[in-house]
Amino acid sequence: MATTMATAILFMGGLTLLIAAALAFAASRLDDNADVAVERIHRVLPHTQCGQCGFAGCRPYAQALVAGTAALNRCPPGGEATIRALSHLLDRPALPPDPQYGECGPAAVAVIDEAACIGCALCLHACPVDAILGAPQWMHTVIEADCTGCELCIAPCPVDCITLVPPTRETCA
């Protein structure tokens, strides 16, 4: 009885160890190389999701950078620090910020004038980082901690009640 148990445990232990070794080997060979690179590049971008680089967010820009189809100086909120980091990671020469994609201006956050807000919910959908609190026919307000100053909410507002004000933190390098 004890020997049967010992044999069973030994056999299952040995089998699983063998399988684990085979899987570990396969995992090291089948590593998703493209994904790892995109993730590394994505981490140094400022994540404002403003779309000023011409891509629909920071991750598509990171993918284009890895694929080599975009220049690394297209991110205004990232500024020169991001350009330097990207140049270091991609092993490409650093370039001055491209003014065609926007200026790296002083940091700002959006503020909704509550007296003018009509609760239309158009700015809720425009915000790429979901920093506006509210619902249709209820008051809207911007959560300053989440706002990246991408300015995408300013255009949809039909009563122009959103303005940019200096934040209490730095976003632009």
Partner: peptide, 8 residues
């Protein structure tokens, strides 16, 4: 193994 391969 199949999942690793499909993801790759």
């Amino acid at each position: 193994f199949t999942e690793m391969f499909v993801r790759h």
